[in-house]
């Protein structure tokens, strides 16, 4: 109400210039986002259809679909979540509850921030050696393979490649290798998010539990972890959505494949949505750009759902931790 209209001295004019520059920058950022979303919507909506979602790839743009990459994304991200979430939480628990303020924590912390800075394509090289080739185990021979026949309660060797419980070593570039690769990529993110969640738990809660004679694990398992879990889950969802968008490390481990079936077990060949988008975008023909845009719309829809889920989890499960 009593804000002054200051005289236009050079100092106040300078002040306005700064304000305008800042607001303009924010506006440009929003414009960039808007033009990105709009151009994709304009380009892609025409190709979206039920048939697009339920068909396999094709040499002709008109009949191509994204069933295989959709299914591949689901498989790979499920494996990634299954590995990265418990490992991320476990590491965070160790760093925050066991190794707090120790030199070890300092070293590991630095190492984690280093890992977060490693380009994802480099993880592809690591995964190629460790998961796909298993350090050259049986290279040049037929892989060691087996599958579990649950109805007869026995292990078949060599395994049956059509069975759900088919494993071979080395893994090759199947969904298991893909999922583990993405787990490596998102693990640093998951650890950092879980650590922040744990740090947000007030010290008083821990002290209360300790004063009652809880052991360290009991404090962590019964007090800290439950209190931090909603925030951790938000971090987990965001980590997995990062995995959903990764293409580079998967290109390194398997190259791009025109996959004509959905995965049946952990060793199945796969492709994922970002790889498919990359493949179609890189072609010169306009009609492939249109289906690439349609695939992007699907990808963004999935990601937005994930984001909404994260917000929902954050808001509905987060109890106040301090009065």
């Amino acid at each position: 109400m009593t804000r002054p209209e200051a005289p236009l001295t050079s100092r106040t004019r300078m002040s306005q210039v700064v304000l305008i520059a800042c607001a303009l920058a924010a506006f440009i950022a929003v414009t960039a986002l808007a033009s990105l979303l709009l151009s994709i919507a304009v380009e892609g909506t025409g190709s979206l259809s039920w048939k697009f979602l339920t068909s396999f790839a094709s040499r002709k743009a008109a009949s191509a679909g994204i069933l295989a990459p959709l299914a591949g994304s689901v498989w790979v991200c499920a494996i990634c979540a299954f590995v990265a979430i418990p490992m991320g939480i476990g590491t965070a628990l160790y760093l925050e509850e066991y190794a707090k303020k120790s030199r070890l924590q300092g070293i590991i912390q630095l190492n984690i921030s280093n890992l977060a800075g490693v380009p994802s394509i480099v993880y592809g090289l690591l995964a190629l050696a460790v998961f796909v080739r298993c350090f050259g185990f049986r290279s040049g021979e037929t892989p060691l393979s087996f599958s579990v026949d649950w109805s007869a309660m026995r292990i078949l060797s060599p395994g049956d490649p059509d069975s759900l419980w088919f494993i071979q070593i080395p893994f090759g570039s199947g969904v298991l290798a893909g999922g583990l690769t993405l787990a490596l990529v998102v693990l640093p993110i998951m650890i950092t998010a879980s650590q922040e969640a744990l740090r947000a738990v007030p010290k008083s809660l821990r002290q209360a539990a300790e004063a009652l004679g809880s052991t360290r694990w009991q404090v962590a398992w019964r007090v800290t972890l439950p209190a931090a879990l909603p925030t951790m889950m938000t971090g987990a969802i965001l980590s997995i959505s990062r995995a959903l968008g990764e293409a580079a490390p998967l290109l390194v481990i398997g190259g791009f494949l025109m996959v004509m079936q959905t995965p049946t077990n952990l060793m199945s060949d796969f492709t994922v949505l970002p790889m498919q988008i990359y493949n179609w975008s890189g072609r010169p023909q306009e009609e492939f750009h249109r289906i690439a845009a349609a695939a992007i719309i699907v990808q963004l829809a999935v990601l937005l759902t994930f984001n909404a889920l994260a917000i929902f989890v954050r808001q509905s499960f987060q109890k106040p931790l301090q009065s």
Binding site: T2, P7, T12
Partner: peptide, 9 residues
């Protein structure tokens, strides 16, 4: 000191 034209600086 309260007017709109006061230069707070």
């Amino acid at each position: 000191l309260l007017g709109r034209t006061v230069d707070v600086v």
